[in-house]
Amino acid sequence: MSAPIPQQARSKTLRACLLCSIVLTPADFRKNGCPNCEEIMQLKGSPDRIATCTTTSFDGVISVISPENSWVARWQRTSNYVRGIYAVQVKGRIPEDVEAELENRGIKYRPRDQTDQD
């Protein structure tokens, strides 16, 4: 299972999910939502959600070809996600409601901006 690969690598419109760091075009986000965390982010068909839960400011892209075997994917905590393009760093935090939801579920939120490393 793999996510769509954006056609334009250099496009300024590419957006990275603040939670799973996958990189897609806004159109892909709107059409299919986030392939990894749609259940909690609810991006599908909602440009407002896309604007708040994804960002264009990210640094570095990773082609995760074989998530299960890749150390890079494990380091980025994307091993269990679909194949696709991921960002190395994503700037910003998920909206507070999503953060609260994660907290409810007892899931530790790890921002993708490498602010807390442990």
């Binding site: 793999s2 690969i5 954006p6 690598a9 250099r10 640094d59 570095g60 892209v61 990773i62 082609s63 995760v64 070809i65 074989s66 075997n69 890749s70 150390w71 890079v72 994917a73 194949r83 696709g84 393009i85 190395v88």
Partner: peptide, 30 residues
Amino acid sequence: RDIVFSLMRKALDVEFTAKPLNIHSAFQRD
């Protein structure tokens, strides 16, 4: 970045051919 994307597409294209790519990932830093 284009090359990282190209590697991804290429990996998907040749996945089920006789010669799939044997790389796990590729990345780039700005």
